[in-house]
Design a protein around this nucleic acid. Structure first.
Lengths: 149, 149
DNA sequence: CTCGCTTGCTTGACAATGTGAAATATCGAG
DNA sequence: CTCGATATTTCACATTGTCAAGCAAGCGAG
């Protein structure tokens, strides 16, 4: 199975394919560790994401849906379960009685903190890289993401 | 914000945090585009992953579960749906009558090929990087993943 | 060969996440 | 005030995931 030289697409050279594969592996491992860290606090991945989001800033349900890129009706259930555990609460928006602001409780903030602390991925691995290498990696990732400062 | 924090908590310097955040963004975008590409072929993410796996090589159900890091009972349903669409078929293993080998059909192989072709992530972004930069990125990702060949 | 253990897969019940459509309440413009 | 848009919820449904139980087949000890 020797790879042929690409003809039609310029994206299939061996080096690019290898980088794509490595990125796929990083994605898989990141997810794995994220779910694992969430489970350690009896949370699902989606719940952990929402909790982390709200720990930064309270926001209306609709905005959570935008951040998660899902339907608002889905967020209802996730926040319901977080609220059921006392990690999050719904508060009315004083400026618009239609919206409900989801905000972490004291408990929720603490859980979010512990969650973040137990998220080891890309920290332990990164420890093997020198400051210079990490800077290079940062710049390359930035450019991959289209951020051109 | 000391650049050289003692070794007890080496994970919280600004540079590392930024890289972790960038990795998170990469992960999010990768997932987004993967689901999108799968949906274009009326597949869910899990179905696309299994199809891609089987397009490389037929394998027993139990091995699919190992690759996906989930319970074998879960794989049953996913393969059921792929089989229902004629993209995959179950074949007996001649060496062990307990195992069922899942294999792509002709249709499945073609769909898997189109799926892979529409997976643009980390190809278009990577196009902006020179060969040298891509090599650097590859090496850094390898080391992040603990591969030291 | 049979007994008992293990292995591979499926089934069933259940939880969580996700979608889409319909219902409710509120906002805002005309 | 009325009408259309917006924010949230509820419902029905599909998919993915877990766990426990069940069945069929391999395998080793006696």
């Amino acid at each position: 199975m020797t790879p042929h030289t690409p003809r039609t697409t310029p994206h299939t050279d061996a080096l690019t394919v290898e980088v794509v594969e490595l990125v796929g592996t990083v994605v898989a491992r990141y997810h794995e560790e994220y779910e694992e860290a969430a489970a350690k606090h009896s949370l699902t991945g989606a719940q952990a994401r929402v909790l982390a989001l709200l720990a930064r800033e309270a926001m209306p349900m609709r905005r959570i849906a935008q951040k998660l890129k899902c339907e608002p009706s889905n967020v209802t259930g996730i926040v319901d379960r977080l609220e059921g555990r006392g990690l999050v609460e719904r508060r009315p928006d004083p400026d618009d009685r239609r919206v409900k602001l989801a905000a972490v409780t004291e408990d929720g903030r603490e859980t979010a903190g512990r969650l973040r602390a137990s998220l080891n991925f890309a920290r332990e691995p990164l420890a093997g890289l020198s400051t210079e290498e990490r800077t290079t990696l940062r710049d390359l990732l930035r450019r991959m993401l289209g951020e051109t400062p």
